[in-house]
Design a binder for these strands. Structure first.
Length: 595
RNA sequence: GGUCCCGUGGUGAAGUCUGGAGUUCACGCCGGCCUGUCAAGCCGGAGGUCGCGGGUUCAAGUCCCGUCGGGACCGCCA
């Protein structure tokens, strides 16, 4: 973190320095600082220590105790920087070697006692109260840091994109409602009562049309809005680095976005991460059981299907896919009760069951397993599990047998449950997940394949032949960027050829008439000359949160909403006056009667 | 739409399982003392509709039902 940059704020008519920037080198100079009273320590009639805080830090001011300053008063203090007397240096404070003496105190504004302490203790305060008094919460060092990490990342992203020839174009906030995708926020039209704009869930349409327009490389730090339920990593409103490029292939896009992400990471942490590795979707599922693998820890899924080819254990005998994970050293921590809970968890994730094996010492330095199914396992099967998973005494082995995808998903979730470190721990592990399947699942009614990314994604060139014959095996040119198990964002190479687009619609079971009705406004402009193009968008809130060591994106958003979508500070959302609704031609239904 | 956790002076917690006077602890606040502290110290004080509503009971912060608010997750987020 470039803390130094935060300390150097130009002097104003009221202050010469920031509180937090004063050091030994300033000894002897007369300075003025402005800020909030962080703490006051009184020592008799004529001595008090007042810690004054601004965003750069705190400095101790020695004042006459007759001056009545209290917590969070806004003050301007003029004094002489001097060395602290021997034995009174505070090594815990960057300004701890000096203090301000002979202080003149000017009270710029008195303050009521804050509802919670403006320091690290507020980390424990009910989040609702922090949000209600967000302006006080933001006054704290942690939140000031988060705001500034965010600003540094935004700035680095802009610089990187511009250095690569991207041009920032702003797209509208009032856009048409689109039939597919996330639920939208609607904005009523006053001039056309009954008609509505939508707030953009992303600038997708507009950025692709900028490619048709010949902009070549577009980017925007764009606000996106989705009316879906909120989570630790999801808000109604969030920011994306949105980008689109012409005359490119997948490598070109990944290269450009990698550059911006690495520049952002360097700005936030001071260290440029190594080149971002790539992994196919299939590898990610096979080894980690998720399409957003957290590479900070092991416990990889290990293939066991062939080892049980001739097993007597019925649940394993017929399963298409058998895999296991080995959680090191925790066998003793899991009693029958917790193991039952793990089994329930596996079942709720879709598995038929879960086999657990505790590694214990066997004969001849061999590993043996303590497990309800141990008696069904042959010596060679035990040997295979122990060897392939690298099991040592005290490990807990979990095995799932099911369809390949279910086996992977269940074990992947258990792997995260049992092994995933908190976000602020360990290295940053970026990974591009590529070669996503073109189609995921089938429509329950029509049986047609459903698009994995969106219906305008280019299939993988090697798989074009299978599009009609074996659509589920077709890979797409869609890709995700993942950091420490969080999906930062996704993108794809788009279809710019009308014949290929028609083939995709046909596979999806969308008629030409329906395609025109639903997507014509988007695709017809392509007939005027769409260049080959592709793009990407990633969530800045998530990137900032991880780089700031926060588990929750609310901590890196100045004014976030609660899980129910409310803002405790402004009390929004609120009812509006009837006259306002009349003007918009809107009538609100009474709340539905509860049954 | 669903599952789970939480709600006690301004703040954080204990008390709830096993009902018995608004009880306790820390911080903050107010007043006093205090000339080298630094989350100062010492003495004194004020401050609560135990989220809200209903029920059971001689008696409810505590048990039951409902409801509101907050959080984690599933669904959802092409």
């Amino acid at each position: 973190m470039r803390l130094v940059a935060w300390l150097t704020v130009p002097a104003t008519s009221m202050r010469t320095h920031m509180c937090g920037e004063l050091r030994r080198e300033h000894i002897g100079s007369t300075v003025s600082v402005c800020g909030w009273v962080a703490r006051r320590r009184e020592h008799g009639e004529h001595l008090a220590f007042v810690d004054v805080r601004d965003h750069a830090g705190v400095v101790q001011c020695v004042v006459d105790n007759s001056v009545d300053v209290r917590s969070e008063y806004v003050v301007r203090i003029t004094g002489i920087v001097r060395e602290r007397p021997e034995g009174t240096v505070n090594p815990n404070l960057p300004t701890g070697e000096i203090e301000l003496g002979e202080c003149q105190v000017e009270i710029l504004r008195t303050a009521a006692p804050p509802p919670f302490p403006i320091d690290a203790r507020a980390d424990e305060v009910d989040e609702n109260i922090r949000l209600q008094y967000r302006y006080l919460d933001l006054r704290r060092e942690r939140m000031q840091k988060n705001l500034r990490v965010r600003a540094a990342i935004n700035s680095a992203v802009r610089a990187s994109m511009e250095a690569q020839g991207f041009v920032e174009v702003e797209t509208p906030m009032l856009v048409p409602s689109t039939p597919e995708g996330a639920r939208e926020f609607l904005v009523p039209s006053r001039k056309e009562p009954g008609s509505f704009y939508a707030l953009p869930q992303s600038p997708q349409l507009f950025k692709q049309l900028l490619m048709v327009a010949g902009v070549d490389r577009y980017y925007q730090i764009a606000r996106c809005l989705r009316d879906e339920d909120l989570r630790a990593d999801r808000q109604y409103e969030f920011m994306q680095l949105d980008a689109e490029m012409s005359f490119v292939n997948q490598d070109d896009v990944l290269g450009a976005i990698s550059e911006a992400v690495l520049a952002a990471a360097e700005a936030a942490t001071g260290e440029r991460p190594p080149e971002i590795e790539r992994m196919t979707w299939h590898d990610a599922m096979n080894r980690f059981g998720v399409d957003k693998p957290d590479l900070r820890f092991g416990i990889e899924l290990t293939e066991l299907t062939d080892a049980f080819a001739a097993t007597e254990f019925k649940a394993f005998a017929t399963a298409p896919s058998i895999k296991g994970i080995c959680v090191p050293g925790v066998a003793a921590d899991y009693g029958r009760n917790q193991l039952d809970k793990l089994t329930d968890r596996a079942k709720s994730l879709g598995a038929k069951g879960l086999v657990w094996l505790k590694a214990v010492a066997g004969d001849d330095l061999q590993i043996a397993f303590e497990s309800p199914v141990a008696k069904f396992l042959s010596a060679s099967e035990v040997e295979a599990v122990a060897t392939r998973l690298g099991v040592v005494e005290g490990d807990l082995v979990l095995v799932v047998a099911d369809e390949w995808e279910t086996t992977c998903e269940v074990l992947g979730q258990l792997r995260n449950d049992l092994g995933r470190p908190p976000v602020h721990e360990g290295p940053y592990r970026y990974v591009w997940v590529v070669d996503f399947p073109m189609f995921v699942g089938r429509d329950a009614e029509t049986g047609a394949p459903k698009p994995g990314h969106h219906p305008f994604t280019q299939p993988h060139p090697d798989d074009l032949d299978q599009l009609e014959t074996d659509p589920m095996s077709v890979r797409s040119q869609a890709y995700d960027l993942v950091l420490n198990g969080w999906e930062l964002g996704s993108g794809s190479i788009r279809i710019h050829q009308s014949d290929l687009q028609r083939r995709i619609f046909s596979v999806l079971g969308i008629s030409e008439e329906e395609a025109n009705r639903k997507f014509g406004f988007f695709l017809n402009p392509f007939d005027y000359g769409a260049p080959p193009h592709g793009g990407f968008a990633f969530g800045l809130d998530r990137l900032v949160a991880i780089l700031a060591g926060e588990e929750n994106i609310r901590e890196v958003i100045a004014y976030p909403k609660t899980q129910s979508g409310a803002d405790p500070m402004t009390n929004s959302p609120l009812p509006v006056a009837a006259a306002q609704l009349d003007q918009l031609g809107i009538r609100v239904l009474p709340p539905a009667a509860k049954g």
